[in-house]
């Protein structure tokens, strides 16, 4: 399963790398479950950006589902 989560505003620069964020592959895990998704990532250092809407929306939902599983 590959899901793409990219915010409207991608005008973010990683410091100190100085690189603009780009979509990149990321692994998220919770309670022993792993998910492969595409998120904004610094192409140099690999730092991942989990934006507000994603954290409070889909991620929160999945966390709750996994907690009740």
């Amino acid at each position: 399963m590959s899901l793409v989560f990219i915010p409207e505003d991608m005008d973010w620069v990683c410091e100190p790398c100085g690189e603009r964020l780009q979509p990149g592959k990321v692994e998220l895990t919770y309670l022993g479950n792993a998910f492969h998704v595409e998120l904004p990532v610094c192409p140099k250092c690999g730092a991942v950006y989990i934006y507000e809407e994603l954290a409070l929306g889909r991620i929160h939902e999945v966390e709750q589902l996994l907690e009740d599983k």
Binding site: L28, Y30, E52, I59, E63
Partner: peptide, 30 residues
């Protein structure tokens, strides 16, 4: 994991918003 969006000001950090999640990013966050 806590995320904070802010500006640096003379009186301190002006906090604009903050959010959090429990899911882990393999290899770390920022």
């Amino acid at each position: 994991t806590f995320w904070v969006e802010y500006r640096e000001g003379e009186d301190g950090y002006e906090i604009l918003k903050a959010w959090s999640h429990r899911m882990r990013i393999t290899g770390g966050d920022l």
